[in-house]
């Protein structure tokens, strides 16, 4: 069994879809609110913010009224309602009293929208990040000799894999 050293750590690359999101965020006048929303995490993926996961879409202000747009990963994702509540509560606490959370449907969410930092966080949580060719690498020993145990893992966005080298079972964030 060959183990890779830390220096061979995977480097996450920004996708064109993420680059588009990023430039939209950077061109916004409401940097303070975008930064504030970085505090909100997916309750089922603690440690990865809604920005990094790609589901924070937009921050819009009209007079004193704020509209935060988010999207769900999968149409049945139960986390999206609680994320909406978290946003409303946080905004309220920080003095943005008139806030509406809007759920948008288009464009459909894709794992291409995840930020490079988000991919790194997944690795840190020992979740294998999405791969277009479904080359799933063990997040524990980095071995490539892995097999699919179940197409669905602990949540709809993950599949369950096992490493044939270190025998560890792990979640794989489905390429979607």
């Amino acid at each position: 069994m060959v183990k890779r050293s830390i220096s061979e750590k995977r480097i996450s690359v920004a996708t064109p879809q993420f680059a588009k999101r990023k430039s939209h965020r950077e061109s916004s006048k409401h940097q303070a609110v975008w930064s504030l929303l970085d505090e909100i995490c997916d309750p089922e993926l603690p440690g990865i913010s809604i920005w990094d996961l790609g589901i924070l879409v937009d921050v819009v202000r009209q007079d004193s009224r704020w509209t935060i747009s988010i999207m769900s990963t999968y149409s049945g994702c139960p986390a999206v309602d609680s994320i909406g509540q978290d946003i409303a509560e946080l905004m309220m606490r920080r003095g943005y009293e008139d806030t509406t959370v809007k759920f948008v449907l288009a464009p459909a969410w894709s794992t291409e929208m995840i930020s490079p930092e988000g991919l790194d966080s997944l690795r840190e949580m020992k979740i294998a990040p999405p791969d277009k060719d479904n080359r799933v690498e063990c997040p524990v020993c980095q071995g490539s000799n892995t097999r699919l145990l179940s197409q669905f893992g602990s949540t709809a966005c993950k599949a369950l894999y096992q490493c044939q080298d270190c025998l560890e079972s792990f979640d794989y964030f489905k390429c979607f």
């Binding site: 999968y74 049945g76 994702c77 139960p78 669905f152 949540t155």
Partner: peptide, 11 residues
Amino acid sequence: NVALDYTGRAR
């Protein structure tokens, strides 16, 4: 999980 996807659509 497949059931959940369909609940999502229905909603």
